[in-house]
Write a protein that binds this DNA or RNA. Structure first.
Lengths: 291, 291
DNA sequence: CGAAAAATGTCAATAATTTTCCAAAGCATT
DNA sequence: AATGCTTTGGAAAATTATTGACATTTTTCG
């Protein structure tokens, strides 16, 4: 039962599970551009969301409105209630929660980190790093510390899709010597090291460096000691008011690097992606057949 | 001559002298409640401003619009999200690089995702999820799909530090039945499922749900089918102009959840952290001694 | 893999909105 | 105070939007 005084956003959330595919398509278009996307005529709103008009009409009835005009009316009243125009609309991230709510506090801190991180990137270093990561002639080794191993895994998953010869050095350092043995000039090492720097990683980086391996380091704002042997290093701001550190900015920088590498590798990557998709589809078929 | 790209507000100001008395009446009503007053039907908007419909129709033509619908369209475009959020203010993230540089393009897309994700979180759902995640009486199972396994690993690393009884279900689904066997009411399942939804995960979620396990789902903007059996689900916007999806927003939401859980668990966690630190220090000593 | 069910889009009828036209009212000027 | 111009609002015409019925496609389940 939809609450009579609920906002359109809340109603969509409540009924989200019961919405059909196209209805969800429209719901998302609305949430992405709230509330403007719902204030145009039903025809326009529908075609902007790439669904048909009746779909929208049916959906607003599902949400509890008599028809599209009533739905628009509700959106308009919300817009008036928030008082001032779109400029002041979102002082808080999660508008319905107070400023002191953890969600807003966290979002504020994390975006500040992202801002600091990105405004301190040297774009030439960044481009150079992307070039290195795209060098398919050599191997690409990826390694991380305790916390950053998840980032290393994420990097591995993506670089593996983009290019060949990618190796994920697991976080247990016992296996590292075997990898070092095979390292040679022309190879690249992507290394993650954030606060609570691990001496193992430094030792690994030194040995790799001695063997002529190019090192790309992703570290925190205080910079891991590995920076001294790294060819390119990137600092990520990670401080939040908490006992642990946030890696949101790190993740975003990593993704930017992945995006840049992919752009360099294109169009080889394109072909690779398609083959990969096919392989996954086949795996799916394998799994479904016995059921 | 009215500038083609001027806002409605600006156009009104420019032509203010040439407006007639009733037109000015409407103009003021619009400026007092901008832009909502201009988004209703012409009949309503006119009667709210206590002028007649033709007056409004004539006026918007004076302002340079073909008709009332075109005028409304202009208002709507002004209202559209671009440039209004807390992050979008910054035009270039990496100031020294041009706007078209990948870093800036990526940062723009990613922050828009973050903005959309956070403005669509239901704070009550979020709080409820944090409560569940903090329930140390039951087990906390964490599982992810192919791409999201890195996120699952990250979640595991942190929740393990915060609380007891945390289990990371590896991405190979062959081992899942064993875990399901042990699941019981009071347990919680934190599940990651983003585009290219995996049927395995859905099956797992259904079985867990039947055993009375509470399910928290972190998914993408289109919502995985798991949402229908999940107790709390969170949508993350992941689209970037690329062949793959960005999980920056997902990561940030996950970190917010970790932060909230930690806040609930404190001070038990405090003690736990200290013991953990000690253990890591000891490990370091072990490793250093033989060198 | 096939049948049943659900969902989606096309089309047409209906309802609403916008616009135009015209007469009445207001206002300034002589 | 009267005339002519401008402005205003009522009502009808034209346009556009909305909704319901139906056929097609897609999905789900056995």
């Amino acid at each position: 039962m939809t609450n009579a005084s609920a906002t359109v956003r809340e109603r969509i959330r409540q009924l989200h599970a019961e919405l059909t595919r196209s209805e969800r398509k429209f719901a998302n278009a609305l949430l992405e551009n709230y509330p403007a996307a719902g204030l145009a005529s039903i025809t326009l709103a529908a075609s902007n969301a790439e669904v048909s008009t009746p779909t929208v009409a049916r959906m607003v009835q599902k949400l509890g409105y008599r028809g599209y005009p009533q739905f628009q009316q509700a959106l308009l009243e919300e817009l008036q209630a928030t008082g001032s125009g779109p400029t002041q609309r979102r002082a808080n991230w999660v508008a319905e929660a107070p400023e002191a709510h953890l969600l807003n506090r966290f979002a504020k801190a994390a975006t500040q980190n992202i801002e600091r991180t990105f405004s301190n990137i040297d774009s030439r270093q960044f481009d150079a790093a992307a070039q290195l990561l795209a060098q398919q002639a050599g191997m690409l080794y990826i390694v991380g510390g305790r916390i950053s191993s998840a980032l290393a895994l994420y990097a591995f998953t993506h670089f593996q899709a983009i290019r060949s010869h990618v190796v994920h050095m697991t976080s247990s350092s016992a296996t590292w010597p075997h990898y070092v043995l095979d390292m040679a000039e022309g190879d690249t090492l992507l290394l993650f090291d954030v606060r609570r720097y691990e001496t193992n990683l430094l030792r690994l980086a030194k040995q790799a460096s001695e063997r002529g391996v190019r090192i790309i380091l992703i570290t925190d704002q205080w910079a891991s000691p590995v920076a001294s042997v790294a060819d390119h290093s990137f600092q990520c701001w990670i401080e939040i008011p908490s006992a642990w550190d946030s890696n949101s900015a790190t993740m975003m920088l990593l993704e930017a690097l992945i995006a840049a590498t992919q752009e360099v590798c294109w169009p080889e990557t394109k072909d690779r992606y398609e083959r990969l998709e096919n392989l996954f589809d086949m795996t799916r078929l394998f799994k479904q057949s016995p059921s």
